[in-house]
Amino acid sequence: MFSIDTGSGFWNPILWVLVIIIAFLMMYILRSLGRKDYRKTTEQIKPFLSGNPELEKDKMHVRGSNLYWGFRESLKGFYNVLLKLHSGNTSDYILWFVVIMAIFFIIIGVI
């Protein structure tokens, strides 16, 4: 009753949560065997920058648009086309509507 069955697989969250709870307890105990403390006043709490001087905080934060550079870089051609299509022009919105309507009508009319 608690699980769902798709005909090709299944998923029972309750048992999984049980596993997670037990594993969490175990690992929490294991973790608590380790050393808890650290010296909070020394330089070791400073971020590691390979010895470079620490910048002001605004510049230490990697900006959102700089993330996933590698992804965007390898799909550059795709994105150039995609951004061109999103023109922001109201007329284009309606144009797309008419185009899809025409394509759909041709598909239904022909087949």
């Binding site: 065997l33 050393r35 650290y38 010296r39 709490i45 230490m60």
Partner: peptide, 12 residues
């Protein structure tokens, strides 16, 4: 060894 080391939480 790691269990005996300090567990440093950096400032940021």
């Amino acid at each position: 060894k790691l269990f005996t080391k300090e567990n440093v939480i950096p400032r940021h």
